[in-house]
């Protein structure tokens, strides 16, 4: 039982409640693009070949902020690149669909696998 629920019930002197935690499952989790970006980030996966980072460099702090490394072309949102051509409001230039449908499917597939593994008792 969660500590705050336990404290509340004990303060109220209630013992007639049945406690159950409803946990989100992976399949219901929102497909936040940030989560996908983190999963793919080589600095999190430790894939130095992809990151182009040497461990010593990273530990000396030189690579931690990515300073001096050019942004990959794909990191520049197309909507920003086309900003000058837009006239529909100041923030209109930020409107974009940042991820392709296939990328969403990748995350959905990963979450489904995780959910299946939880259901099977492997996680």
């Amino acid at each position: 039982m969660r500590s705050d629920a336990e404290n509340l019930l004990s303060r109220l002197g209630q013992n007639k409640f049945r406690y159950q935690e409803f946990r989100d499952n992976f399949a219901d989790m929102e497909l936040w693009p940030l989560f996908e970006a983190l999963i793919r980030d080589p600095r999190i996966s430790g894939d130095t070949a992809v990151a182009g980072l040497d461990r010593d460099e990273a530990h000396s702090g030189a690579g931690s902020a990515g300073a001096g490394r050019p942004y990959p072309a794909s990191a520049v949102p197309q909507s920003v690149a086309k900003a000058d051509a837009r006239t529909d409001g100041l923030f209109g230039r930020y409107e974009t669909t940042p991820l392709a449908g296939s990328a969403h499917e990748d995350v959905r597939s990963l979450l489904r696998q995780l959910n299946d593994r939880v259901a099977a008792g492997e996680l």
Partner: peptide
Amino acid sequence: SLAQLPRINPARAL
């Protein structure tokens, strides 16, 4: 906060 995760141990899997 989550967006800062890659800065914790760069080039080393969490």
